[in-house]
């Protein structure tokens, strides 16, 4: 899932300080699962900013709603009536949702309430960890199912570098060395010889370096 975290309330409040009526729009997708922008978080944020504004003698009319997903046009079409007379929309979705809103509601001020951090999964309740570097060309079959692109601080493809000690990365003693994990796993699987192959330089054009990427499945596209 996409993992995001809420910006400080005061920072969000600042973005809409000159607005009188605002829609706080949550998203029931990834950000609900990572407890950053679901229905509950949307209500809490709206409530907090409403109180803040009242205390500043600049009352805010805040309404809340949570879309099924903000990253599908179908789901934001339905909120036209909620958006009609607000000065701004505070989106509690990832960066994708914010952009979909800005695109659809051309005359509205749309601001992000979250910082979109990474894609990953949960470790325990309340803790999420980055797992995938979105490099566009998966190499997990060569690295024992552990991604060095994102889990190695240097994205090294022929690791581990000289900064790996006691299983930890030089960057932080709390960070596992991805290449130690890869080594351990490949050894357990009896596939250490695979690590002796020199991994060639990567085609980063399949990553963000090639501009915004598209994924297409023509068989499911609907011809009009």
């Amino acid at each position: 899932m996409i993992v995001a975290q809420q910006k400080p309330v005061s920072e969000i409040a600042q973005m809409i300080s000159d607005c009188k009526k605002v829609l706080f729009l949550g998203c029931a997708g990834c950000v609900t699962v990572c407890l950053a922008g679901g229905e509950k978080e949307t209500d809490v944020l709206a409530s907090a900013i409403r109180i803040k504004r009242t205390l500043e003698s600049n009352p805010l009319e805040a309404t809340t709603f949570t879309c099924t997903r903000q990253c599908d046009p179908e789901y934001i079409v339905g909120i036209d009536n909620l958006v009609k007379d607000v000065d701004a929309i505070v989106s509690l979705a990832c960066g994708v949702g914010v952009q979909y809103l800005a695109e659809r509601f051309k005359d509205k001020w749309v601001v992000p309430a979250l910082d979109t951090k990474f894609i990953g999964g949960s470790v325990v309740h309340g803790l999420w960890e980055e797992k995938c570097g979105l490099c566009g060309e998966c190499i997990l079959h060569r690295t024992g199912g552990i991604c060095p692109i994102i889990r190695c601080s240097k994205s090294i493809l022929n690791g581990p570098c000289g900064g790996s000690q006691h299983g930890k990365c030089e960057v932080d003693k709390d960070v596992d060395c991805a290449w130690q994990l890869i080594y351990d796993r490949m050894r357990a699987l009896g596939k250490l010889d695979k690590l002796m192959e020199i991994q060639p330089i990567k085609d980063w054009s399949k990553s963000r370096d090639g501009g915004p990427r598209k994924a297409i499945r023509e068989d499911v596209m609907i011809d009009e």
């Binding site: 009242t54 205390l55 500043e56 003698s57 600049n58």
Partner: peptide, 19 residues
């Protein structure tokens, strides 16, 4: 609480004041 509209002192001030 500045949000308490019934409290003496808050009633006449629209929105109250910073606590």
């Amino acid at each position: 609480s500045p949000l308490n509209k019934n409290a003496a002192g808050n009633a006449q001030k629209e929105g109250g004041q910073t606590a």
